[in-house]
Simulated scan of single mutants.
Amino acid sequence: MDDCRPLGFLIGLPFAVLALALSLVGAVVWILGTILSCLCPCCICFSGLANLAVGLIKAPVNVIRWFVRQIPC
Rank of each mutant, 00 (worst) to 15 (best):
C42L: 14
L13Y: 02
I11F: 08
P41G: 08
D2K: 03
D2Q: 00
S37V: 03
I11Y: 04
N62G: 15
M1E: 05
R65S: 12
V25F: 08
F67C: 10
I64E: 04
G12I: 01
C45A: 13
V68K: 04
P14W: 02
T34R: 14
V25P: 02
L13P: 00
W30F: 13
L24E: 08
A50C: 10
C73P: 11
G33K: 03
V54H: 07
A27E: 05
I64M: 14
C73K: 10
I64A: 13
R69I: 07
S47R: 13
S37Q: 13
P72F: 04
A59Y: 09
L10A: 06
L7S: 06
A53K: 02
R69V: 07
I35A: 12
D3Q: 00
A19L: 02
Q70E: 05
P14H: 04
M1I: 03
L36V: 11
I44V: 15
V28L: 10
Q70H: 02
G12V: 01
L39S: 14
L52Y: 08
L24G: 10
P60E: 01
P60Q: 01
D3L: 00
A21Q: 10
R5S: 07
L36M: 12
S47L: 14
I31N: 00
G33V: 05
C73D: 11
K58M: 14
A50P: 01
P72A: 10
I31E: 02
C38E: 05
R65D: 08
R5L: 02
W30Q: 08
L22F: 14
C42Q: 15
L7D: 09
V63A: 04
V25I: 11
I64H: 03
V63F: 07
I11S: 05
L36S: 09
K58A: 13
C43W: 10
L39Y: 14
A27H: 07
M1D: 02
G26M: 03
L18M: 11
F9M: 08
T34A: 13
L52H: 04
L18R: 11
A16W: 03
V68R: 07
D3H: 00
C38H: 06
A50Y: 07
P41I: 05
F46N: 14
L18K: 11
P6M: 00
A21C: 12
R69Y: 10
I35Q: 04
N51S: 06
Q70M: 08
I11N: 03
V68C: 06
R5C: 06
G12E: 00
C45S: 11
G12K: 02
W30G: 08
P60N: 02
